[in-house]
Design a protein around this nucleic acid. Structure first.
Length: 466
RNA sequence: GGGGUAGUAGUCUAGUUUGGUUUAUGAUUCGUGGUUCGGGACCACGAGGUCGUCGGUUCAAAUCCGACCUACCCCA
């Protein structure tokens, strides 16, 4: 189980051993969420709900099925998704006149309703989101959380009076992303996609990208400016103060279960995964160390200890299984519980316990009277150091290049004049994709286009996407 | 998009070359009882399989043939 030797194999093995998902369900790319993995996802969803609600988005739930005629209204959009939809062609024994599809994303489910809901400028902005599963017929090899056919994700959809207000929404989405990623201890890049790589139907697309240990990039989410590209075919109009009828401007924002894949990939080590404390199903596991003659005493003290920690708002698991302590240590290390607290006869005699950090392996003997403070400090420090380590790692894997020869398997930055001709050339000669320029970079440097040599304003990131 | 390899208890695996005495092998896992417990314990007894699915060849198929499903790999 060496992470550095074969990342792909390590990843599959860890997902299975840690009990995050079961891929034995007999449909390709449709895995079962097992309890431990689902708990992680629910913690992530909880933060998504919190930050969406906090910014006046409202949660909704649209039907899974979309009729074919609604799906077909925006022509770029169908072109982009046609090849990867699952169709419902029959109801009972009867073939359907109008086929239905399993949503690959919900624009075409929601927008007919938006057109009914929105009448006046007073109805704007409309900001909604939902947390659902979507279906995409992936033909490539699937991988738990990273490439699946049934995807758990959240999508927010907004409608605005004009382009500027939609732009404001996109800036708000960047802020939500930052807060969310902080809980996951994940560094990331916000990169504006090329014209030929944008979401089908969008005016522009911004990707939220991170880097895997293999050197490939992984897109964790995306934010789209639609302008009025969808509101025209779907007739989403409002009447402004002057009585004029105008089309709304729209945005979407989404992130998926890939976030879990990223957490595993970035923080994990040879012993297993390491859960960031904010999303860990259990932040602390209490392992009693019984000894001949003191079993009852150790167990009852361990129960007290666990309850004490629970009272201090930690998510705690007390492991009373009848297996040896060493066995439990290995199990919880694979599952990545941030902090392990051991309690044996020696500790009881000293009125203390032993705390072991999952990320560094550091052991500390803690007086029971100081338990709450010390544990608080350690948990906070684990979050900090996970983010710090991951950030350093990302920075060390970004390389500025002035030519396209002999590029390492990292995130490459090069100058690009912005022309499609040069862009395509960059992609074909390097066998990489242009992920785009960093939208958070406020002071663009003067560079030359790596292909034509002209002055360029775009410093774009290249990588091989997962 | 094109090609390749594989599928035998929860998991890994022997057996497939050359169809027929292996009761389909072994380990692990699981269950019960006991001794244990500060980094993967041990003893005893027990449980677990339509050999991926469907069809074909044959007196006879885990074994040969075909399709499909699934997993994994390589190339574009």
């Amino acid at each position: 189980m060496k992470k550095s030797e074969d990342f792909g194999e390590w990843y599959n093995e860890i997902v299975e051993l840690a009990g995050l998902s079961d891929k034995r369900y007999p449909i390709k790319g449709m895995n079962v969420w097992t309890p431990y993995g689902w708990k992680i996802m629910q913690h992530i969803d909880r933060y998504i709900r919190h930050y969406c609600d906090d910014t006046d988005h409202h949660e909704v739930l649209f039907p899974l099925l979309i009729p074919e005629n609604e799906f077909s209204k925006e022509k770029e959009h169908i072109k982009g998704f046609d090849a990867e939809v699952f169709w419902v062609t029959h109801a009972g024994l009867n073939p359907l006149d109008v086929k239905m599809l399993l949503r690959p994303t919900s624009e075409t489910a929601m927008y007919p309703m938006f057109s009914v809901w929105i009448r006046s400028h007073a109805d704007l902005p409309l900001k909604i989101y939902q947390i659902v599963n979507v279906f995409r017929y992936e033909t490539k090899m699937t991988r738990a959380f990273i490439r699946v056919r049934e995807i758990h994700f959240f999508e927010s959809h907004t409608c605005h009076a004009d382009f500027e207000d939609a732009e404001r929404q996109i800036r708000e989405n960047f802020e939500i992303t930052e807060k969310l990623m902080r809980h996951l201890c994940l560094p990331y890049k916000v990169l504006k996609r090329t014209e030929w790589d944008k979401f089908p139907g969008a005016c522009y697309t911004v990707g939220i990208d991170m880097l895997l240990p293999s050197g490939r990039s992984l897109q964790l989410g995306s934010i789209h400016q639609y302008k009025d590209n969808f509101s025209r075919p779907y007739e989403i109009k409002y009447e402004d103060e002057k009585g004029e009828h105008k089309y709304v401007h729209q945005t979407t924002f989404g992130m998926s279960e890939r976030l879990i894949g990223a957490v595993i990939a970035v923080h994990g080590d040879d012993k297993g995964i390491i859960m960031p404390p904010d999303i860990a199903p259990y932040q602390i596991v209490v392992v009693p160390i019984p000894a001949k003659g003191s079993v009852e005493e150790v167990y009852s003290e361990a129960k007290k200890l666990a309850q004490e920690l629970k009272n201090n708002e930690f998510r705690v698991h007390l492991d009373l299984r009848d297996v040896r302590p060493g066995n439990k240590f290995y199990d919880w290390e694979i599952k990545g519980v941030p902090l392990r607290v051991e309690l044996g006869p020696r500790d009881i005699a000293n009125n203390s316990c032993v705390a072991v950090r999952r990320d560094t392996g550091e052991k500390a003997t803690i007086k029971r009277s100081e338990l709450q403070d010390r544990v608080n400090t350690i948990i906070a420090s684990i979050s900090e150091s996970l983010l710090e380590k991951a950030t350093k790692n990302l920075e060390n894997n970004i390389v500025d290049a002035t030519s396209l020869d002999n590029l390492p398997e990292k995130l490459i930055r090069v100058g690009w004049c912005g022309s499609e001709e040069c862009g395509r050339k960059i992609e074909t000669t390097t066998d990489r994709s242009i992920l785009g320029n960093d939208v958070s970079d406020a002071s663009p440097r003067k560079v030359k286009c790596v292909v034509c040599g002209k002055d360029a304003e775009n410093v774009v990131h290249l990588s091989k996407p997962m």
